[in-house]
Amino acid sequence: MFDELTDGDLQPVRAVPQPGRSAPTGGMSAAGGKLLNQYGSTTDRSAAVLLGANPNFSIASVGKRISGSLLDGVFSMVGMALGFGLMLAVYAVSGVDEEQAGEFSDPGFWAFMVGAIIPPIINAVLVSMSGQTLGKKLVGTVIVNEATGAPVGFTQGILQRTFVFGIFTGLPLIGIFVALADVVYLFIGDHQTLHDKYAKTYVVNA
């Protein structure tokens, strides 16, 4: 039986075009590309959609993201230093003794809180307006919605991404693991951290 096979019998079989469809070409079709992409990670596909719809976007590097966070940390420390200075000034003027220090009725405590909350308030306003904290403005990055590519607002950028996720990291026992996993994801793939995934955001170059 095998002796009867000819070279023509061994040629590849061409696909027969179906009505309403064009014949397959030598390159990979768009449908074939989509089929293969189904085996990629969900985040990779999300990033591809985001970058495809916004060709001018590029995912911010790990270095930029860390630099922005460090600058925001310095900004917060400046606020705390300001609050501490205000607290000392209030103590000096009012003559509050050490036993009262830290009580809710202590004016020095509230003076400290005023200084400490200035950076978070400023950053919340900046994120609501432009999707950028002060640190992100300085390094040239912006937080965007993963579906639309638009800068995030207060709800997505502050409530979901910072406040609610911060509650998760503050949970007893599991909070530390959530925080560690959040850092690990920064170094994977498109640098979408857990708090990015939860809020459905990306950090891109501005």
Rank of each mutant, 00 (worst) to 15 (best):
F2M: 15
D3C: 06
E4C: 10
E4F: 15
L5F: 12
T6S: 15
D7F: 07
D7E: 10
G8H: 12
D9N: 13
Q11P: 03
V13S: 11
V13P: 06
A15P: 07
A15E: 15
P17F: 11
A23P: 00
S29F: 10
S29Y: 07
S29G: 12
A30G: 11
G32L: 13
G33M: 15
G33D: 11
K34M: 15
L35P: 07
T43M: 14
D44R: 13
R45H: 12
R45D: 01
S46A: 13
S46F: 11
V49T: 11
G52W: 03
G52F: 04
P55S: 08
N56W: 10
V62W: 06
K64T: 03
K64P: 00
R65Y: 04
R65M: 04
S67D: 08
G68K: 00
L70E: 04
G73I: 14
F75L: 07
S76Q: 12
S76R: 11
S76Y: 15
G79E: 00
M80P: 02
M80R: 05
A81K: 10
G83W: 01
G85H: 14
L86C: 08
L86Q: 09
A89D: 09
A89C: 12
Y91E: 11
A92P: 08
G95S: 08
G95D: 05
D97S: 14
E98W: 08
Q100E: 07
A101I: 06
F104N: 12
D106T: 07
D106H: 05
P107M: 01
F109D: 00
W110Q: 03
A111K: 03
V114G: 06
N123V: 07
L126H: 03
M129W: 13
M129C: 07
Q132P: 02
T133C: 04
L134H: 02
L134Q: 03
K137V: 00
L138Q: 03
L138H: 01
I143E: 00
V152R: 01
G157T: 02
I158A: 06
T162Y: 09
V164K: 02
T169V: 14
T169H: 04
T169Y: 05
T169R: 09
T169W: 06
L171R: 07
P172C: 09
P172K: 14
L173N: 12
F177P: 08
D182F: 04
V183T: 12
V184M: 13
V184P: 01
L186S: 08
L186T: 09
F187L: 15
F187Y: 09
I188R: 06
I188Y: 03
H191Q: 09
Q192W: 00
H195V: 08
D196K: 03
D196T: 13
Y198Q: 05
A199H: 01
K200I: 10
Y202S: 00
Y202F: 14
A206R: 14
A206Q: 13
